[in-house]
Design a protein around this nucleic acid. Structure first.
Lengths: 321, 321
DNA sequence: TGCCGAGTTTGACTTTTGTCGAGAGCCATG
DNA sequence: CATGGCTCTCGACAAAAGTCAAACTCGGCA
């Protein structure tokens, strides 16, 4: 397969069709190929991000609720996915929105930190392709051995693939069995470099995990259900990039956290734009904790969650006054 | 006309169609309107920039010639529009390319300086709509009274309209009859402010004018053909934002330049990204002058002009060695 | 009240686009 | 040098999108 000429043709077809506004048959005759081929090239052009079709996400930030939330929580921007009546699947709606928002936030030359989880992978999966130059996607935390498709490295790779970017994977386990080993591994140059590079990211994408038996940490065997319950008693409120945080968004002082290989929360906070996406209504408290910890600047949530957050913020200010 | 609900509908239709990938009839049934209306809304969405369809201009920078030119002239990026055999109208081709490149260079929140001329207006006219937030388009030089559609203020306004941006016009004539009056006018707070704001632009768009009887300066009556010829004898090599430059790209020391109200060349050079577009082959020397003066960092030209520039650069280096 | 007119919406029609299987070209291999 | 697997390309058909004139809606006005 002559890859270059084909690429050229795709570009030319896309250019004539989208930039010049020619019809497919006109493009076909210009390029001396059949119209069917033009249609195929155009599909490829869309699939590979040679042409970008993006819709403004205005509609979802323009919402009064979104504005109020921005003010109440001190966030840079909030997008609210509708969840009324006949919306079939609110969590897909949130993911589609998040994918658009993410693409809107990415700029050429950016370095993007990506965590993992069902939500992040769903976003990656839904996200359309783009042809961004010089973008690097870095994995924010170590890996889990489980066969989930949404393993940290999978999330990173998939997003890198979609953006036509370089993926920087992190070849270390997320959790080790002893604190000493974790310490030693963190001191390794390769790992240290990767971890210290996190603060230089321009954009982060993550969700927050719940502290319960359904957590991936439990499913992947990093923690037993009873350990999880114990952590919860100790004040665990959520999971960010594999680390357990308390209600104030600070890392919980526990053995587990000391055994984790992941970007420090302070490095995460050093990232200019931190996009947090939460799909499940059940993640209200984890989300509150993440917000309290200043771990997000941009937020994508569903309408119900947004309302709850706003009610909570109002209750808090009233109590204070 | 209920403008808000209509806007909402356009957004929703665009969202369902482009982000979710539904078909028009599916969108129609979701929104309880006819498919014909959906088609209309989608057209409006495209026209107003609610959806962005952009094609990568890679093809035109990837050219070997473009790379060589970048190196030879020390520019950040060069795009070359093909001009071979059956391309109907090379100057339109250049303008279409320039419009895409321009849209690719604009970012949210940018301040954009725009000069004037047939080329700039043609680009504005061809450019597709976009919905950029917080963009300001500022006029780089004073106005001419002529009834051309490509008057400085028209260029600025049209580009602002296309981007959904704020247009900052410049209500002063380009040329005054005496140097004193020009000095006095430049000292006016309103004018001074506008002029000093130029350096804060993030992006500039201009072309370069030729020093001959066909120049707009002559057509608009700012200079007589004989004055123009005299300036040429004095070393005038081109016109940038209404000012006359010599072959080194420095402002020519002449009465005309002292009577002009326009952004100083040093302010123009302070703009990070300076996109220069040249359509006519006859503007070879003016373009050389502009490049010599460091007045462009990004360049869009046709293939013939590109070749001439490269040949010239090679000849220059050979002579030097 | 009833009529006007600008702006929308719609159904029916036309044009354009997407898709699929057949076949053509191409290389590596036996 | 024929064979088989492979991708690419094309023609024909089906599906989707674009278009337009007629119908409709809804204020304002006589």
């Amino acid at each position: 397969m002559a890859i270059r000429p084909a690429e050229q043709l795709i570009h030319k077809a896309a250019w004539l069709y989208y930039a010049h506004g020619l019809r497919q048959d006109q493009v076909a005759s210009q390029l001396n190929i059949s119209r069917a081929s033009v249609a195929m090239y155009l599909r490829k052009a869309r699939e590979t991000g040679i042409v970008n079709i993006s819709t403004s996400t205005q509609l979802f930030t323009d919402d009064v609720l979104a504005r109020k939330l921005e003010d109440a929580l001190g966030l840079d921007a909030v997008w609210i996915a509708p969840e009324n009546d006949h919306i079939a699947d609110p969590s897909t709606e949130i993911a589609v929105l998040a994918a658009s928002v993410f693409l809107e936030l990415v700029k050429k030359g950016d370095r993007i930190g990506v965590a993992w989880g069902r939500t992040v992978y769903m976003i990656a999966d839904i996200m359309s392709y783009a042809d961004l130059q010089d973008v690097t996607v870095v994995q924010l935390c170590g890996n889990l051995g489980a066969p989930y498709s949404y393993r940290p490295d999978q999330c990173t790779m998939e997003i890198a693939r979609r953006l036509n970017a370089k993926g920087l994977n992190f070849y270390a386990p997320l959790v080790l069995s002893t604190e000493e080993l974790a310490r030693a591994l963190r001191a390794e140059p390769v790992i240290r470099e990767q971890l210290s590079g996190v603060g230089e990211c321009d954009l982060a994408l993550y969700s927050v995990g719940a502290v319960d038996a359904d957590s991936h940490l439990v499913k992947c065997g990093a923690l037993t259900p009873s350990e999880m319950a114990e952590l919860r008693r100790q004040g665990a409120a959520g999971v960010i990039a594999g680390q357990i945080i308390d209600a104030q968004g600070k890392p919980l002082d526990c053995s587990y956290n000391r055994r984790v290989i992941s970007a420090e929360l302070s490095s995460l906070r050093a990232i200019t734009r931190r996009l947090m996406v939460v799909q499940e209504d059940s993640k209200f408290e984890p989300l509150l904790a993440a917000i309290a910890g200043g771990l997000c600047t941009h937020l994508v949530v569903g309408a119900r969650m947004a309302q709850r957050l706003l009610d909570h913020a109002h209750a808090a200010t009233e109590k204070a006054s």
